[in-house]
Structures are given as structure tokens and as C-alpha cells.
Simulated scan of single mutants.
Amino acid sequence: MSLKDQIGEDIKTAMKAKDKIRLETVRSIKKAILEKEVSVRPSGQTELTEAQEIEILVQLAKQRRDSIAQYEQAGRTELAAQESQELTILEEYLPKQLSDAEVEQAIAEIIAQVGATSAKDMGKVMGPAMQQLKGKADGQKVQAIVKAKLGG
């Protein structure tokens, strides 16, 4: 079942359960998928690839994390709590997140592959790291681990 089909089923389930936050969150995912599908049609693509779907989910999750941080900074705990609930729902659709140890191991392998030795080589490592870990680890966490390993 594609993500789009799964979202359609989950919208029906949330409507029946009268789960307002889940319904709004799942609808926002559907909206993002439809917008992306429209944007790729001119290139002849009719359906999104799994990587494109994950990219959308990662982007939506990042937006929620940023909003949570901003609301907490402004003392708006009720809004931060709502964003946090939405983030939890979004994460159900994302691939299982890797642990810090798994991310560190993957980055160590990439550093060895590209022959990175100092902070100057960070760009050489970040490209392959983000490609390999996309949707499986937060980009900021990956960047922090790469910096630490390269002594930056």
C-alpha cells in the first residue's frame, strides 16, 4: 500500500474516531503529497517515489520541530504541545529512526570511505551521510556527529 493510499485510509479512520488532531495532521500530509505530485507532473512523473514521499514527511517533521522550539521559547506551551502531538503522528509514517550509536557507526564508515581527516572535509562527508541517512536520522544530529568526529 502506497503512502497516499495509507493516508486516505487513515483520514477515514480519524474521521470515524472524531480524532481532530490526527485528522488535521493526516490531511496536511495528504495536501503536501498532492502538491508535490502536481509539481513533478511536468517532468512526466505520475506518482511519487518512496524517496520523495519520505522527503515530504521529513520536511513536515522538521517544520513541527522548529515550531515546537519557537513556541517553547515564546512560552506558548499549549501550541508546543499540539505541535508535539502532530510530530508524533508524523513520525508514525517515517522509517524507524536510527539510534545515536547507529548514526555514529554509519558516519564513521562514510568518513573512512571518503578519506576525510579534518573539519575541512565536512562537505565530503555530509553529502553521502544525508543521502544514506535521509528520513532515518535528524539532519542536525548527523551534522553534529560529523563535526565531532572531524574535530570541527
Rank of each mutant, 00 (worst) to 15 (best):
E83R: 03
V58M: 13
S67K: 09
L3T: 06
K136N: 00
E86L: 04
G115N: 13
G44E: 12
K12I: 08
A51R: 14
D19A: 03
A32M: 04
S99Y: 07
A80T: 08
K18V: 06
G139F: 05
Q97H: 08
E104R: 14
M122E: 15
S67I: 02
A116G: 07
I89S: 09
K62R: 10
E104H: 09
I107Q: 03
E24S: 05
S67P: 00
D66N: 11
L98W: 03
E78N: 13
G8T: 09
E104V: 03
S28I: 00
A51C: 03
E47D: 14
G75V: 10
G75S: 10
G123P: 02
L94T: 04
Y71L: 04
A148G: 08
Q132K: 13
Q6K: 14
Q6E: 15
Y93D: 09
I11E: 07
E109K: 04
E53M: 07
Q45A: 11
D138V: 01
E53H: 08
D100H: 05
D100G: 05
Y93I: 06
T46N: 07
L60H: 01
I110N: 04
E47N: 12
D19H: 03
M130I: 00
A74L: 15
Q82S: 05
S84T: 12
K62S: 07
I54W: 06
T46E: 15
A148C: 03
V40C: 06
S39M: 12
T13P: 00
Q105H: 12
A61H: 00
S84L: 11
Q105R: 10
V146S: 11
Q85S: 13
A137F: 01
Q59K: 14
L98R: 05
K124V: 01
P42D: 04
R22F: 01
G8E: 12
E50D: 14
V114M: 05
I145M: 13
Q97F: 06
V38T: 13
I110V: 10
T49R: 05
R76S: 13
T77C: 00
D19S: 02
K4D: 14
E86F: 02
A101N: 04
A144N: 15
